[in-house]
Amino acid sequence: MSNSNLLSIKSLSVSFGGLKALSDVNLELDRNEVVGLIGPNGAGKTTLFNALSGLADVESGSLEINGKSHKWPKPHQLIDLGISRTLQGVGLFPELTVLENVMVGDYKRARSGLISSALGLSGKDEAKLKQRAMTALERVYASGIAGRRADSLPYPVTKRVAIARALVSEPKILLLDEPAGGLGAQDIEWMNSLIHNLAAQCSVILVEHHMDVVMNVCDRLYVLNFGQVIASGEVETVRRDPSVVAAYLGVNS
């Protein structure tokens, strides 16, 4: 294991009822690395994200972050581990403003006790919270719409805001679930360069169907099929792997 190893998942298995959604999956992520998770629909990509973020029950498997072994987190503990994720689709709070949506992502860092909240003692904290949320919005070029309600935004912009919310807690690991899904060519290009830039500050695991995005931004790939890793390694190597071509790339591109 290299010194720069940040996240290590070993022998992860997840079942739904009798169905094995993931079996014996291993995954490594280094610092400042962008790792792509690809595979046909139902291969288990989102299930892996869900297992890692406490939304799916882990049957067996171990989790190491920074060389320290951790229990599989509950959803609300994810941020404590330095991990944040976006959801497939949009996943914003429709009736909150853009700024509030991003501030929610930083909830853990703000003092939020009932008493201090009720007495309004958190004013200073709130100012800092707002400042950090604005910084996160600037990183996705969305600070100009901070006051708009989330449900009034065009779809591509909501994707940016969702990423800003994931960034505001300054995660070490960012899980992006189909960030380019539903975007047009221009927005996809923009997303490409954003993910490139993000890798300077954190590591990224990317689930994405747009192959051009995957090929463009990823350092390494894991290919899932029927809940198992069928190939992994450098992008070019994986691309030429016959089993991958058969299972996925050959069909889709």
Partner: peptide
């Protein structure tokens, strides 16, 4: 208040609220 923000966030999308640490 931040607590109010958590109350409003949890009302509509408990799943995302959880992932945000609430």
């Amino acid at each position: 208040t931040n607590l109010g923000l958590a109350l409003r966030a949890s009302a509509h999308s408990p799943e995302i609220a959880k992932l945000s640490g609430i």
